[in-house]
Structure formats: structure tokens, C-alpha cells
């Protein structure tokens, strides 16, 4: 191993893992100890990663308080170290981490609130896509429509939760002037999170059949299978109206035939 690599691994162990060993012997003291100097880097790393997480999860932070959020962020980066020079992707596993983090086990809704915040962040810088080509769709013969596969907009995501996470999210926005509390017994929600062409992000609460249809299409099921699943989930669903709503409003943006 090169001396440079050895030094970098020693530095990372001292700063990320608190395993300084005799690493501070490699640092000139000059008024401050080697370890005190390393502490500056520990602080910088913590601040940068905490800042990246706080930018994505303002609602989680508000729900648990800044002090606890700092603790959670510190634990998160131990279990899920940063793997990119782009800090925007650092928080990806935070919802999963919260699910396994015993200190918040009593806040059962918290991981799903975090999921909502991650998807909001994720669609914010997803790609643009033109609307679905209706003329091309009209040319598909009726008997071939069932084998089509449809694609969701690159800036659209589906999320299902047993908790009223949208309501929780809404009352924890800075500009919210409504009720300050949420009754958890109001039940769960099925959501489409979508960034529109004007770059604003919208939440569309979906009924069971709609959600099932879009989820099946997102899972790359063919149109016939997706329709069957949607009708099974909600026999009263107005399927044609539901499908055309998601085409017209831009959630479904392209299609291809499996056999073509």
C-alpha cells in the first residue's frame, strides 16, 4: 500500500470512526494538538452531512426537534456513510434507517413521512418529459392495447402509507396556518407525487383502483394486467376516466408494445 493511501485510510478512521490510534503523531502540533486539529475536520464533515440531510428532511427535523435530528443524522452517517461527492444523494437511505432506529420506534409514521420528503426531493431534479403521443396511441388497434406497457413521468413517484402523512407534511410547512395537530386515526393515504412542467411539485391523493393501476404500470405490467388489478382492487372504478385523467395530466408519458 502506498504511503499516501495509508495516510488517507488513517485519516478516515480518525475522523469518521473515531479510531485515531496514533494518527495524530503524523500531524504537526504547533499550539494545538493533532487531535484538536482533526476535530476541525470532524466538525466540518458533520456539518456538511447534517446540512445535506436537513435540506431534504425539514419535516422530520421539525417533528423530532433539532437536537434529536442531529443525533439521528450522526447515527445515520455511521450506518450509511456517504458514497458520493454529490451531497444531494446522501439522504437516500434515511427513511429505511429511521425504520430500524429504535429511538424513534414509537413514532411509527416517521419513516413514511421521511419517504414522502425523499420522493419530493427526488422528483424535484428529475428529468423533463414531453406529454404522451396521443395520435400514436390512437393508431394502436384495440386488440393490441392490452399488451402495451406505459411509463410514468420521470418526475412522478407513487407512495402508499398506513398513516396520514400528507396531512402531517402539510401542517409542518412554514407557511401553514391550519390545525396544529393530526388525528392518526384518520387513516392512510395513497399518493402520486409529481413535478409538473412549471417545475412545481404536486401531491395527488389517489383512490385504491387508481393507485393500483399506476403501481402496476410502474412495475412494468402490461396494460391488461394493470387494468385487471385495478378493477380487482376497486370494482366501482371508472377505468377509462381514470386512465385518461393520468394521460391528460401528464403522469403517463410514453408507451411501447412488448411484441413490436
Amino acid at each position: 500500500m502506498s504511503r499516501l493511501r495509508e495516510l488517507q485510510l488513517g485519516f478516515a478512521a480518525a475522523v469518521l470512526d473515531g479510531r485515531s490510534g496514533d494518527f495524530d503523531h503524523q500531524i504537526l502540533a504547533r499550539g494545538l494538538s493533532g487531535d484538536r486539529r482533526l476535530q476541525v475536520y470532524r466538525n466540518n464533515v458533520a456539518l456538511n452531512l447534517h446540512g445535506a440531510l436537513a435540506a431534504v428532511y425539514p419535516v422530520v427535523r421539525r417533528l423530532v426537534g433539532e437536537k434529536f435530528f442531529q443525533y439521528a443524522a450522526a447515527q445515520y452517517r455511521i450506518h450509511h456513510p456517504s458514497h458520493s461527492g454529490d451531497l444531494h444523494v446522501f439522504g437516500e437511505h434515511f427513511p429505511y434507517f429511521l425504520e430500524t432506529f429504535e429511538s424513534v420506534a414509537h413514532l411509527a409514521y416517521l419513516p413514511d413521512v421521511a419517504r414522502l420528503e425523499w420522493l419530493y426531493h427526488d422528483v424535484a431534479d428529475a428529468a423533463r418529459h414531453p406529454a404522451l403521443d396521443l395520435a400514436a396511441l390512437a393508431e394502436v388497434p384495440a386488440e393490441r392495447q392490452g399488451e402495451l406497457q406505459f411509463q410514468l413521468h420521470p418526475a412522478a413517484r407513487l407512495l402508499k402509507s398506513a398513516f396520514p402523512i400528507l396531512h402531517i407534511w402539510q401542517i409542518n410547512q412554514d407557511d401553514d396556518a391550519g390545525d396544529a395537530s393530526v388525528d392518526l386515526s384518520e387513516g392512510g393515504i395513497q399518493l402520486l407525487i409529481i413535478r409538473r412542467n412549471n417545475l412545481e411539485i404536486e401531491f395527488w391523493p389517489l383512490e385504491n383502483g387508481e393507485f393500483t393501476l399506476l403501481q402496476a404500470l410502474a412495475d412494468q405490467q402490461d396494460f391488461a394486467t394493470a387494468c385487471e388489478r385495478a378493477m380487482a382492487a376497486q370494482p366501482t372504478l371508472d377505468l377509462p376516466a381514470c386512465f385518461s385523467r393520468h394521460v391528460m395530466h401528464g403522469a403517463l408519458v410514453s408507451f411501447h408494445s412488448l411484441r413490436a
Partner: peptide, 22 residues
């Protein structure tokens, strides 16, 4: 500077030793 080693990023501008190797 450098900011990652062993696949882990520290996301900070870390000092190099100023040696011939480096």
C-alpha cells in the same frame, strides 16, 4: 485536496501531505 477513501466520502476538502509521492 481529497475527500474520499475506501469508497467512503467525507465531503470536505481534506489536506494532502506535500510529498513527492503525493
Amino acid at each position: 485536496s481529497w475527500s474520499s477513501v475506501g469508497g467512503r466520502y467525507l465531503n470536505d476538502l481534506l489536506p494532502l501531505p506535500y510529498t513527492e509521492d503525493a
